[in-house]
Amino acid sequence: DEFHFHWNGRDIRVRGDSEELRRLIEAIKRGELSEEEIERAIEILER
């Protein structure tokens, strides 16, 4: 699976399928994380 979302003017695409990944992306979409937490998560996910 590939998750695709927009954040902070960026087009983010992440491959993978796990419950943890889904929860993280939902939290990002709901605005539950700080900008710094989101940046760090995206860096890890894009590897």
Rank of each mutant, 00 (worst) to 15 (best):
R40M: 09
K29P: 01
D17P: 11
L33T: 03
I44M: 11
E20L: 14
E26Q: 15
H6E: 04
S34A: 09
I44H: 08
L45Q: 02
E36I: 13
I38E: 03
A41V: 10
L21Y: 12
I38T: 10
W7H: 02
L45T: 02
L45M: 08
L24K: 01
L24N: 01
V14K: 00
R40L: 10
F5H: 00
I42V: 09
E2M: 05
I42C: 02
E2R: 03
G16W: 05
E36L: 13
E19A: 14
G16D: 04
D17Q: 06
N8V: 02
L45I: 09
A27I: 07
L45D: 01
I12F: 15
V14P: 02
N8P: 00
I38C: 03
E26C: 15
E2T: 07
F3D: 04
R13W: 15
E35Q: 11
I12T: 00
G16I: 08
A27W: 15
H4G: 03
E36N: 10
R47S: 13
L21D: 10
E36M: 11
E43C: 15
D17Y: 07
A27F: 14
L45V: 04
R10A: 02
D1E: 14
R10F: 01
R23F: 12
A27C: 04
E26D: 11
R10D: 01
I42M: 05
I44D: 09
H6A: 03
I28M: 07
L33G: 02
E19Q: 14
E35D: 14
I42A: 02
R47T: 14
E35G: 12
E19I: 14
H6G: 01
E32L: 12
E37G: 09
A41L: 09
K29Q: 10
N8R: 15
E43T: 08
E32M: 11
G31P: 02
R47I: 11
G31L: 05
I28T: 02
E26I: 15
S34Q: 08
F3M: 05
G9H: 02
H6M: 06
R40V: 08
I25R: 03
E46V: 10
E36G: 09
L21E: 06
D17R: 05
E26S: 14
H6R: 06
R13F: 15
E26P: 01
A41W: 13
I42Q: 01
W7P: 00
R15H: 12
L45H: 04
G16R: 04
I12M: 03
F5M: 02
L33Q: 03
L33C: 04
R15G: 08
E35I: 11
D11V: 15
H6K: 05
H4S: 07
E46F: 11
H4F: 11
E35V: 13
R10T: 02
R10N: 02
D11S: 14
D17W: 11
H6Y: 08
F3R: 02
I38F: 05
G9A: 01
I44Q: 08
G16L: 04
V14L: 08
E2I: 09
R47W: 07
R22Y: 15
I28N: 01
F3Q: 02
A41D: 03
E46W: 08
R40H: 11
E35N: 14
R13T: 14
R23S: 10
E39G: 10
E39N: 10
R15K: 13
F5K: 00
